Computed example of a mutant assay.
Amino acid sequence: MKTPRQIVTELKQFTGSSIFYKHWLGLKYTDGIKYLADETNCYWLLDAIFSHQTKKLLSNPNLQEFQIWHLRVDNNSGVLICEWDTNQELLRQEIEYTDFPLSHIKLYLVETVLILPSEY
């Protein structure tokens, strides 16, 4: 099992993706996201982000092409936040329990593809 520091270091190595994986909800994700999900067993995080892609959320034109997602974890509980710009929160989901090993991860949803910031 890798330490959180090792995972963060390895995530920084992803700077693009030649392969896109299709999620069961129809959206896609990159090599870096697949690595994150495999290493931290967090496919639930992809499910959560993709399940929020509803007509209500996407009715905001700011969110149709670009979204910023944060997962913050403290004492095995977390909060998932969607922003359309830095500190412009539009959605918040409390997560009662998680074993996600990192205290914070930031992801981007660009059109229909979930990516790491280093892959942008």
Rank of each mutant, 00 (worst) to 15 (best):
64 Q>S: 11
22 K>G: 06
46 L>Y: 00
94 E>S: 12
30 T>L: 02
79 V>K: 10
66 F>I: 08
52 H>F: 11
55 K>S: 12
31 D>Q: 09
91 L>C: 09
97 Y>T: 12
36 L>F: 08
74 D>G: 04
69 W>S: 05
16 G>I: 05
82 C>A: 08
77 S>R: 14
53 Q>W: 03
70 H>Q: 08
93 Q>K: 15
86 T>S: 09
62 N>A: 13
85 D>S: 13
85 D>R: 09
65 E>F: 14
14 F>Q: 02
21 Y>C: 01
12 K>W: 00
85 D>I: 02
73 V>L: 09
12 K>R: 13
45 L>T: 03
14 F>N: 01
94 E>D: 14
24 W>D: 12
56 K>Q: 11
32 G>D: 03
71 L>R: 08
44 W>L: 00
38 D>N: 13
47 D>K: 05
45 L>A: 03
58 L>E: 07
20 F>I: 07
37 A>N: 02
92 R>A: 11
24 W>R: 15
23 H>T: 05
72 R>M: 09
43 Y>M: 03
43 Y>Q: 04
81 I>W: 00
69 W>V: 07
86 T>M: 08
32 G>Y: 00
33 I>N: 04
47 D>G: 01
65 E>N: 13
99 D>E: 15
37 A>F: 01
53 Q>I: 07
34 K>S: 06
75 N>I: 05
98 T>K: 09
79 V>M: 12
90 L>Q: 14
55 K>G: 13
93 Q>A: 12
13 Q>G: 10
45 L>Q: 06
49 I>F: 01
46 L>C: 06
29 Y>W: 01
32 G>C: 06
37 A>Q: 02
34 K>W: 01
12 K>S: 09
45 L>Y: 04
30 T>K: 01
26 G>F: 10
29 Y>C: 03
53 Q>C: 12
28 K>N: 11
74 D>K: 15
97 Y>P: 00
29 Y>S: 02
25 L>S: 15
91 L>H: 13
56 K>M: 06
88 Q>V: 06
52 H>T: 14
46 L>A: 01
43 Y>K: 04
72 R>A: 07
87 N>D: 15
49 I>M: 06
72 R>H: 11
68 I>L: 14
24 W>Y: 12
99 D>N: 15
70 H>G: 01
93 Q>F: 11
59 S>L: 03
12 K>Y: 04
32 G>K: 02
93 Q>G: 03
76 N>M: 09
74 D>Q: 11
63 L>S: 08
42 C>Y: 02
28 K>D: 08
59 S>I: 00
62 N>I: 05
77 S>L: 05
52 H>E: 15
58 L>G: 04
78 G>V: 05
56 K>V: 12
78 G>F: 06
32 G>N: 01
21 Y>V: 02
47 D>N: 13
85 D>M: 08
70 H>W: 10
81 I>K: 09
31 D>A: 06
32 G>L: 02
33 I>S: 01
77 S>C: 10
67 Q>C: 06
82 C>H: 00
49 I>E: 00
94 E>K: 14
77 S>H: 14
18 S>L: 11
87 N>I: 07
48 A>E: 12
21 Y>K: 01
75 N>E: 13
55 K>Y: 03
